[in-house]
Design a protein around this nucleic acid. Structure first.
Lengths: 339, 339
DNA sequence: CACTCGAATGTTAGCGCTCACAATCTCGGC
DNA sequence: GCCGAGATTGTGAGCGCTAACATTCGAGTG
């Protein structure tokens, strides 16, 4: 009893189930289910009747019940390593948008210094997407992912794991080449933390590019991405050798701080030293001087990440081109070195 | 059949259910459920036996099944209006952290220009939290929230809705007072979009504060929060009356662009014009000149938001003090007007 | 020492959906 | 006008859990 056939229209809870729809449309609950899921073999007239019934009693399928029955939640977990940074956070948003468009929900899981996948409720997601990972995060993750499909958004593509990336190497080469073309020979790299994949690739590109030109790379200064760090370096007379004429900073924030630090010491950018950043923050064009930098299209990255993941999840052939190409944006923080 | 008592240990799917635990511990599934939920009347010995069994077969309760049975998901939806902005995004992160600590999951739901609550799967969340809302978003929302508890993170506290806020009015007063104390009398406000609650409150504070001093407020220029807008205003000779000696910008980004625009016209900050921002972006201290601004503690805001929401959700007495106090940070973009 | 009562545990029935299978219907071909 | 292959619809069970009620157990009472 209390089954489908009784006279009830809506249960007290206000919830409407497929049984209510079925009853109203004069079909079985299973037929309703088929209509919902776009099953092929449904007579047109029946489908219409069911759809009308659904609309009339304002029926909405329960994702929870569906998840229980199918053990697929249509929800993906997104771990953002350093969520307050512009890059990760805009990537996250792009992923989220794309996910919603694909009919998936997004479970946000940020992470301080440890990844606690138990709290992350891994069982309630169909897949996991990790943004801007540090190497340390990655290894913790690998050990515990326990069956959930995984996609990495990171610097260097990985062999055995699904991943997408902005081509950090190419981006860094753009930056260095720009300085070389301007005539700089004494170029320093203000790098990101050793533990960050992006940082490492950029640093490697810097060294290799200079070496290829027969120039000696300086040992990179390793910062923490913050403008504070850049400021410290810029304002400390001992931090950067005097003969340096250009600095390639691994991100815009450190570049900003660096310029500030230089300014305090009376070193002018670009007159005395040129500075290139990385990221192209929305505000970088209004820094003083407007910053020459390498633009990463984080939105495209996020979209690519999600579509790649969903393709894999639904067994479709993966799209090709898992690398986004960055782009050099020349502004006013770089110039030819003084004769 | 295939019920509890049969000899199966783990089902092929690799999933372990309370029945598996029950069997192993020699109790009924319901007893297991009681142990999981910390039900009082369980003999200590039984509890231990069950807990051991859970550990041995690595049992983890299914949130999905629990959600279906209880119709509570322990998940909250968080809508972020303009997710790429620093404020909203760091508030979001704080909320997320606090949510996880409280045992809740977070469903990210960003929103472009419309709020599509159907896609938002409102049925799968216990409550909704909306960050940095525009008035238009609010009204759409109010019409469709359909029973889900709602918390607003916004500028002006609301009577009939749960809400938390940074005291925008007080913050704006700090900014204007600072300029007044420096001796400025011709103060312009570079405001945010009309549709934004925060922007409106700041603009109102500006006008009222000046009026209280017997000064004539200028009609605020209404921007779109971007540094581009600030730049346009700053570089356009017609945009700002010449006699103005100080500008209170409604956020740091517009302030940054404004300074850039002034710079292009040869107007020096703070020598010729003082500029105050709002937010205290992490990089604001390294702008040139370092920006005087009003700091909002977004992290505290997010934490407050979530605890308030959870308290309400679980029927606890709400904490008092739903307003976060902002703080003036004086740097180098403000000075006394030239004699 | 039967008797009551609360503590501790078990039993049954869903939550709203899908899956696997069974049943019925429809129609072309002979 | 009958048969079989699809097309279309229905039936029962179960996903893993909790809620409500039923039962058992042990100790305190008169």
């Amino acid at each position: 009893m209390s089954g489908a056939g009784t006279g009830r229209t809506r249960r007290p809870g206000g919830k409407v189930s497929i049984y209510d729809v079925a009853e109203r449309a004069g079909v079985s609950h299973q037929t309703v289910s088929r209509v919902i899921n776009g099953h092929p073999n449904i007579r047109e007239a029946t489908r219409e009747r069911v759809e009308r019934a659904m609309a009339e009693i304002d029926y909405h399928p329960s994702g929870i019940a569906r998840a229980l029955a199918t053990s697929r939640t249509r929800r993906i977990g997104v771990i953002v390593d350093s969520p307050v940074q512009y890059g990760p956070s805009s990537t996250f948003r792009a992923i989220e948008e794309a996910a919603v468009d694909a009919g998936y929900g997004v479970n946000a899981l940020s992470v301080g210094d440890d990844v606690d996948l138990d709290r992350a409720r891994v069982q309630e997601i169909d897949a996991l997407c990790v943004i801007a990972p540090r190497y340390s995060t990655l290894s913790t993750l690998r050990a515990r992912t326990s069956g959930v499909p995984l996609l990495l958004v990171k610097a260097d593509p990985e062999h055995d794991v699904l991943s997408v990336a902005v081509d950090q190497y190419a981006g860094a080469v753009h930056a260095v080449d720009h300085l070389l073309e301007l005539g700089h020979r004494r170029i320093l790299h203000l790098g990101g933390p050793r533990d960050w994949a992006d940082a490492r690739v950029r640093a490697r590109a810097y060294s290799e590019r200079l070496a290829a030109e027969g120039l000696d790379p300086y040992p990179p200064l390793l910062g923490d991405w913050t403008s504070d760090y850049g400021y410290r370096v810029g304002s400390d007379p001992a931090a950067i050798p005097d003969e340096v004429t250009a600095v390639f900073a691994a991100n815009d924030q450190m570049a900003l701080g660096l310029v500030h630090g230089f300014h305090r010491r009376g070193i002018r950018v670009p007159d005395d030293v040129s500075v290139v950043g990385f990221d192209d923050l929305p505000d970088a064009r209004h820094f003083l001087p407007p910053l020459t930098t390498v633009r990463q299209d984080f939105h495209a990255l996020g979209t690519l990440a999600l579509t790649t993941l969903i393709d894999a999840l639904e067994g479709r052939a993966p799209v090709e081109g898992r690398m986004i190409e960055p782009e050099l944006v020349v502004r006013a923080s770089t110039a030819a070195p003084r004769g």
